[in-house]
């Protein structure tokens, strides 16, 4: 218990004194996971829409792969990305190993199936006639797709929450492809592992509290946005 209380105390001290390791790891975690979520959304939402609306040979196979991908072990993703980006690997010439870009790639691979799968489910749960209704009121195909995304917003925000939560808290993949290099690729989770290895539990706890606080704050903000206007309106008559 003393260790926990000491950890909380340490966390406040480290945060308010602007400890360089804490600031660096926090900012890099936000940068890496934020970029990965954004890229996953940019790729995943159109792909989810395509899978929900189009019928083509091999579609069911892709859906099955996406569903399986939702439970991908991050450490396996890290291993595969590491093999591909290794100097002798297929993409070794890019020189991305042990960079933030490599960590973003690994995190996108983890988050993408969640975004695609939840977008697909969200769109398929909508009344299919909504599409016809939008077109029948003069919407172009792209305007109709925007309408569908708006209608599926609640479930798709769940995808963002799930994706962000999954990647900011994972350690296996980023450690393998990032290497936890101080000043370059150290993020909160890898820093925690490092501090535990050194026996500095106070610092490890402080970093863990910060990680928890970030995860909770991001999730809370997204939840507030998601729930905005849901069930708060009351009839006046």
């Amino acid at each position: 218990m003393d260790l926990l209380l000491d950890g909380v105390k340490q966390a406040f001290i480290l945060i308010f004194t602007g400890d360089s390791l804490v600031v660096e790891a926090t900012l890099r975690s936000l940068q890496t996971s934020g970029s990965a979520v954004l890229i996953s959304l940019l790729l995943g939402v159109p792909l989810g829409l395509l899978l929900a609306l189009a019928r083509f040979p091999g579609r069911n196979l892709i859906v099955a792969i996406i569903n399986a991908g939702m439970g991908l072990p991050p450490v396996v993703v890290g291993l595969v990305v590491a093999i591909l980006l290794w100097r002798s690997g297929i993409f070794g010439f890019l020189g991305l190993m042990y960079t933030v870009a490599a960590m973003v790639i690994a995190q996108v691979i983890i988050a993408l199936p969640l975004v695609v799968g939840l977008t697909l489910t969200a769109i398929q749960q909508l009344n299919p006639k909504l599409r016809l209704q939008a077109l029948a009121l003069g919407a172009s195909k792209s305007q109709m797709l925007v309408m569908l995304v708006k209608e599926a917003k609640l479930t798709m925000l769940a995808a963002v929450i799930a994706g962000f939560g999954a990647i900011i808290s994972e350690v296996g993949a980023v450690l393998m492809v990032g290497g936890n290099i101080s000043g370059q690729t150290r993020v909160l989770t890898t820093a925690i592992v490092e501090q535990v290895g050194r026996g500095d539990f106070s610092r490890a706890l402080a970093l863990s509290f910060i990680l928890l606080a970030i995860t909770f704050t991001a999730t809370y903000a997204l939840t507030l946005y998601q729930q905005k206007g849901v069930g708060v309106w009351r009839r006046t008559s």
Binding site: N127, L130, Q133, A134, L135, A136, K141, M147, E151, K153
Partner: peptide, 19 residues
Amino acid sequence: GFGIRRRLAVVFQESLLFT
């Protein structure tokens, strides 16, 4: 189809209102 749909409007049995 798009050009023609811009000249008409459809109401279905279900009201199909948007959020």
